[in-house]
Amino acid sequence: MFEARLGQATILKKILDAIKDLLTEGTFDCSDSGIQLQAMDNSHVSLVSLTLRSDGFDKFRCDRNISMGMNLGSMAKILKCANNEDNVTMKAQDNADTVTIMFESANQEKVSDYEMKLMNLDQEHLGIPETEYSCVVRMPSMEFARICRDLAQFSESVVICCTKEGVKFTASGDVGTANIKLAQTGSVDKEEESVSIDMQEPVTLTFACRYLNAFTKATPLSTQVQLSMCADVPLVVEYAIKDLGYIRYYLAPKIED
């Protein structure tokens, strides 16, 4: 028996919004430690890794490990039927071929449940090596989304250059060149507005704007985003999900032909 309950459906809606543009389907691997999903996008350029810890749920029970393959478009349709403040419970029997998603209004006067067919997805799991990143940038997630949106107008690619002075985003195309530089913030009142850079060595890498923009669909999950970079390895874009876990996107850099 698997059962997981969250106090607010809005969190699950935001998580789905953060992955459904990159992935059409995904396997939710459930164990007593929580729920994990790892999947590459269709073109195998990026990888999404979602971790939701069991202790972040209002109720969590998983007697036997189960893998639930879901069509994310179908799940998004179901989540559309929930009000943001509804409780949401996911339930499945061991070896079941369906999952039940139930919404309850705060006053318990409305209860709805949706049974969704599970899929057998033959998804390949990739081992992600431990990496010492040369640069780790933390910045407001809205600022990152704004930069990705703005620079995508000028080029398909953005060059991210991180030094101890700051982080620079550059896009060059037919129009010309756009540069956006962010310096580390001094003392700020609100931690969520700060930009911090932890640099061992300077790094310059090139990435596809299209994927960076897809990652920013996770912006509503977190006020801050963390970018981890190292020469010749994928960028990690991480959004923490408060008291519940995180979503990490890995993006292969563009390389010299």
Binding site: E124, L126, P234, E256, D257
Partner: peptide
Amino acid sequence: KKIQGSIRNYFTAK
């Protein structure tokens, strides 16, 4: 000219 690499080239299949 830069080309897009695959994420598979960086991570190993489990």
